[in-house]
Design a protein around this nucleic acid. Structure first.
Length: 482
RNA sequence: GGCCCGUUGGAGAAGCGGUUAACUCACAAGCCUUUCACGCUUGCAUUCGCGGGUUCGAAUCCCGCACGGGUCACCA
């Protein structure tokens, strides 16, 4: 009978959710949903010094937004709790003692000074010094209240191997593995030990985690063997990199889920993007709903080499999702960015929003795109040149001046301003685009605007529009040396 | 440095002994257009880190080298 698929996401509460972490959670979730299994959330807080208040909330809020739901965990409850390691402290000590009894572990009383100079088999490793202590000696020192740790007793001979579902067979010589600490002197277990006993008692059958554990996994398997427990399957995940040599980490900034949300990314766009970073579907599909990700996920598609994070591609994907939003949804997301922009409270946002929906990839572009409303600065006259419409500066100058003629008398109505364009078109026998292109430059002074000349003029109002057009005519005249 | 893992264009990647080496982003060119953007079309690896070998045939199998990552904590 095939064993039930159960995996876990086991972050330590550091206070933020790194994008690589999120991806591990995602893959675990996809794997489990695809195989009718369960995913549990376990908080690994055995490092008392690094604990951050509110960190568990950050983990949950991130996963909630990302659409990752756990079957068991501190919030969900479940039959194998508690799901927070600090609440399981006594279990670990008890199990470590069992290992001591069977000779798979031993007490160690070595102090820091000794540890600093110790070498073993030519390397700087613990030398099994305390392994040779007699039972009585150990008991005596324990009774005397000496500080101790419990170390795993790893054989010196032979080698250990296992099969990882993505990397294949991994073999590590036993002599290369150190007798690492299972129980720290503060009585807390180390990761190395705690996760093994938890995974066993939580019936975890698939361990999905970062590949920094790839070569230490044999040690953990030795622990499973020592207890007589069944070893789980392993799926080790590659790293997400900033560039070829650097990991994407919080130290470099911008790697947290929350940062991207704040920048104006849609949660699902982030999820979709990171799903594709290190995993590839059998088809050429790029956009996936969560259901489709589940449907298509398979460990064969998992990559064996690290991937470099490319925010440009994520932005593209985000833009695709933005275009799909209904206008109401778009407006809801966009609103805070308008509130942060220079037009805050002075214009109706809606016309801008309508124009912007197909023109931005991330919401944080909004303030920038709207800035031209207040800012109008001299720009190089070369900007008027347009190969397609065959415009040079000379022609731009003529167009501009013809347009300006009797402009004050004109009604400030959209149609009137459009008719004026036609007039100039006829005058010089041009394509409409030539006039619009010139006028858009003259009135905005920037490369990109939401909407064309007439839309901008309507937003700016008659007075401001005419003022800008006159100004641009003066600048152009100067540049032409007239 | 020892051990473990990896290496296909600028980025993500498909490819699993015979393909014109998919596809997406980026980039470039062109088309369309009342600007910009969207959209559309085309281009972008004569070659798969390098060198050998096996084979009629290698990105795909084998060996060596180089490069990159991971790991060697009372951190996880």
């Amino acid at each position: 009978m095939k064993k039930e698929v159960r995996t876990r996401f086991a972050p330590s509460p550091t206070g933020f959710m790194h994008i690589g972490n999120l991806r591990s959670a995602l893959y675990g979730y996809l794997f489990v949903k695809k195989n009718n299994g369960k995913i549990i959330l376990r908080i690994e807080d055995t490092d008392v010094e690094r604990f951050v208040e509110g960190a568990v909330e950050v983990i949950y809020s991130t996963c909630d937004q990302a659409g990752i739901v756990f079957d068991e965990g501190p919030r969900e409850g479940g039959p194998y709790g508690p799901y927070v390691q600090s609440e399981r402290k006594s279990i670990y000590l008890e199990h470590a003692k069992k290992l001591v009894e069977t000779g798979h572990a031993y007490y160690c009383f070595c102090d820091k000074e000794r540890l600093e100079h110790v070498t073993f088999m030519g390397t700087k490793r613990y030398d099994k010094h305390c392994l040779s202590l007699s039972k009585e000696e150990v008991q005596r020192r324990l009774d005397a209240g000496e500080s101790y740790v419990i170390r795993q007793n790893i054989p010196i001979e032979g080698e250990s191997s296992y099969t990882d579902l993505v990397f294949g067979e991994i073999t590590v010589p036993n002599k290369d593995m150190e007798d690492n600490i299972l129980i720290k002197s503060d009585g807390m277990p180390t990761y190395n030990f705690a996760h093994v006993v938890d995974d066993h008692y939580m019936h975890v059958t698939y361990v999905i985690r970062g590949n920094e554990y790839l070569s230490s996994t044999p040690k953990y398997n030795l622990l499973y063997d020592a207890f007589g427990w069944e070893r789980p399957e392993y799926i080790h995940l590659t790293q997400i990199m900033k560039d070829e040599t650097r990991k994407l980490s919080k130290r470099h900034g911008d790697a947290n889920f929350d940062d991207f949300i704040r920048k104006g990314y849609l949660p699902h766009a982030i999820v979709n993007y990171i799903a594709l970073l290190g995993w590839s579907p059998k088809s050429t599909q790029e956009k996936f709903t969560m259901e489709e990700l589940i449907e298509n996920f398979s460990v064969e598609g998992l990559s064996k080499s690290n991937s470099i994070f490319d925010e440009k591609k994520m932005a593209w994907l985000n833009g695709e999702y933005i275009k799909e939003l209904s206008f109401e949804e778009f407006y809801k997301y966009a609103l805070p960015y308008f509130e942060k922009s220079s037009i805050k409270g002075r214009y109706d946002y809606e016309p801008f929003a309508r124009l912007l929906q197909t023109r931005i990839e991330i919401f944080s572009e909004i303030p920038e795109k709207v800035k031209f409303i207040d800012e109008y600065e001299r720009f190089p006259s070369e900007k008027y040149e347009n190969q397609r419409f065959k415009i040079d500066q000379e022609l731009a100058y003529k167009i501009l001046n013809s347009y300006l003629e009797n402009l004050e008398k004109l009604d400030f109505k959209e149609d009137a301003w459009k008719d004026k364009v036609k007039e100039v078109v006829d005058l010089y026998q041009l394509k409409q685009g030539a006039v619009y292109s010139t006028m858009r430059w003259a009135i905005s002074g920037v490369d990109v605007t939401p909407g064309g000349f007439v839309e901008i003029a309507m937003i700016l109002g008659k007075e401001k529009s005419i003022k800008r057009l006159k100004q641009s005519s003066i600048w152009l005249k100067e540049d032409l040396g007239k």
